[in-house]
């Protein structure tokens, strides 16, 4: 294989004629704010899930200590609240970027409004769930199904934000958490709010599992840098040779 060829998608095991490489174009898909959003969100979300679970089911402490000597459960809650604030403002920044960023980060990528997007949802389900059509064109940015599922997670973000701040509001005099008080009577008091807030933890746990797996899976079937794109921002698009 000639080393001078920029990007070549050939394997040794398969009979691709030498000297006829497939060309790929480098595309800057995820701009810096999108990548920063992603990783702040990832860290905050993991912190929220771990501390949130611990708040629901505190670890058993064995050593004999008096209450004034330690504050670890207080710290767990502190991390949860801090991560929550970071996560909310980070999310708001991402919403803003959905209107000023490039076309891959645009709000329109999250709704299957076009026919082609709906067709892609079918294609991606065929590739991901049934594994029957594992090659062929998939959008360079979010594929239509992924985008729509991210929209679902945004709704879950919003739900957790509302319920979380509503629970937090009784400990706070600031206007931000108190804005969300109205949900408390709707869900039957703090108890109900807490129940739903806790239940959605498991939505995020499930989402994280599936999200990481599918990122790896698409990195494999698409072969154009899905995983590394969220670090460096670049993806690769096959250059169509229609002229031939």
């Amino acid at each position: 294989m000639p080393m001078s060829t920029p990007v070549v998608a050939t394997g040794n095991a398969t009979p691709v004629p030498n000297g006829q490489p497939v060309e790929y174009r480098r595309i800057y898909v995820w701009e810096m704010p999108v990548r920063v959003y992603h990783w702040i969100n990832a860290v905050a979300l993991v912190a929220l899930c771990v501390t949130g679970y611990m708040i629901g089911a505190p670890i058993r402490m064995f050593y004999a200590a008096e209450a004034y000597q330690q504050y670890w459960f207080g710290w767990v809650r502190f991390i949860h609240f801090t991560a929550a604030f970071i996560y909310v403002f980070n999310f708001l920044a991402r919403l803003y970027w959905g209107f000023v960023g490039n076309k891959y980060s645009s709000w329109a990528a999250f709704f299957p409004l076009k026919r082609s997007q709906r067709q892609e949802i079918v294609d991606v389900i065929k590739a991901d769930v049934f594994e029957v059509k594992m090659h062929g064109p998939i959008s360079t940015g979010h594929n239509a199904l992924a985008g729509f599922i991210y929209f679902g997670t945004f709704l879950a973000f919003v739900f957790q934000t509302i319920t979380g701040f509503a629970l937090y509001s009784s400990m706070s005099n600031s206007w931000l958490p108190r804005m969300f008080n109205w949900i408390v009577p709707l869900l039957g008091g703090d108890f109900g709010v807490r129940f739903w807030h806790h239940l959605f933890l498991w939505f995020f746990v499930t989402f994280i599992i599936v999200h990481i797996y599918l990122a790896f899976y698409h990195d494999y079937i698409e072969g154009r840098g899905t995983v590394s794109s969220i670090i460096g921002g670049w993806k690769f698009d096959r250059v169509e040779k229609r002229g031939k």
Partner: peptide, 25 residues
């Protein structure tokens, strides 16, 4: 389970992709 199925299909998928590459180039 999905990962296992993907790996079972691995050879086939690589062959399909390469066949497509060949067709195009």
């Amino acid at each position: 389970a999905h990962a296992v199925v993907t790996n079972i299909r691995k050879r086939g998928v690589i062959a399909e992709v390469h066949a497509e590459d060949q067709k195009e180039s």
